Amino acid sequence: MEEIQQPQHNLFISDLESDRKVAFYKKTYTHLALAVLLFVLVETIFFQIPPLLEFALSLTQGWTWLLMLGGFMLVTSYAEKMALTSHDKNKQYLALLLYVIAEAFIFIPLIFMAMMVADEGGFNILNQAAILTLSLFSGLSAIVLLTKRDFSFMKSILAIGFFVALGLIIAGTLFGFNLGLWFSVGMILLASGSILYQTSNMVHKYSEDQYVAASLGLFASLMLLFWYILSILNRN
């Protein structure tokens, strides 16, 4: 996780007056909503391109999945770094766009599976996953916004958790064992912690001009939560 850099001429959100804080929060969540809508649009477009769909589905086994995962991590890491270290709005928007496109691509196999699982096409599963994700995300965000607690202490815990999870994913792919339901449950807990951390950053760590970067952090945690909730529902 990259450190958030603040220019000297901008105050942290926690140091602003109430009306300016509220304005920042509105901009951040508006951009988060737009990022989710863009994700849906890009995903829909991807599913209308058979060669791209077949290519993404072909990358779900063995070392090719690790290659896809590695590429996703490189792109998203670059996007996060660009957003967090730059106060140029154009770069922040470019970073958010790159992140949304990368998420849409890596989600292709999981959404395809959801559409194939249910007899009626799987859209019920997608709707259920979306409702559960948004409900949990809203509840966790409310905890931070109402209590104003600083969850920055979770950074090290989350970093260790993600490294352990990545190691298990690599081991499971290379040695062919299923990580199972409890791994997905653990990842939901990790994603929930990430939402608390990112929302806390929005309240305490960002400067007033970084609402696009703040929305990217929240979007990343939201999509991680959606991934593993959808993974669990796909098992039924």
Rank of each mutant, 00 (worst) to 15 (best):
F39T: 01
I49P: 02
I49Y: 07
W63Q: 09
E80M: 08
Y78Q: 10
E54T: 11
L52W: 04
L69N: 13
F47L: 15
G71I: 07
L38T: 15
A79E: 03
A95G: 08
K81D: 12
L57R: 13
F55C: 03
I106F: 03
A79T: 07
L74M: 15
I101S: 01
Y93S: 11
E43V: 10
L32M: 13
L59E: 09
L94H: 08
H31S: 13
F107A: 02
L53W: 09
H87Q: 13
A33I: 10
L69Q: 12
S77C: 10
Y78W: 12
H87E: 14
Y99N: 11
E54G: 05
L94W: 10
N90Y: 09
S58M: 05
E54F: 11
T64G: 03
L84E: 06
F72A: 11
S58F: 02
P50Q: 02
L74D: 09
L34A: 14
M73N: 12
N90D: 14
G71T: 07
Q48Y: 08
E80H: 06
F72W: 14
K91I: 09
F55A: 11
A33Y: 12
I45C: 06
L52E: 01
T44N: 10
V42T: 11
F105N: 07
F105T: 10
Y99I: 02
L41N: 04
S86C: 09
V40R: 05
F47W: 09
F107V: 05
L37G: 12
V40F: 14
W65M: 09
K81P: 04
Y29A: 06
E54P: 05
G70F: 03
T30L: 15
P109W: 01
V36L: 14
L53M: 12
W63V: 14
L37R: 04
M82C: 08
A56P: 08
F112T: 15
V100I: 14
P109R: 01
T44V: 08
V40A: 14
L52P: 02
K81G: 08
M68S: 10
E43Q: 15
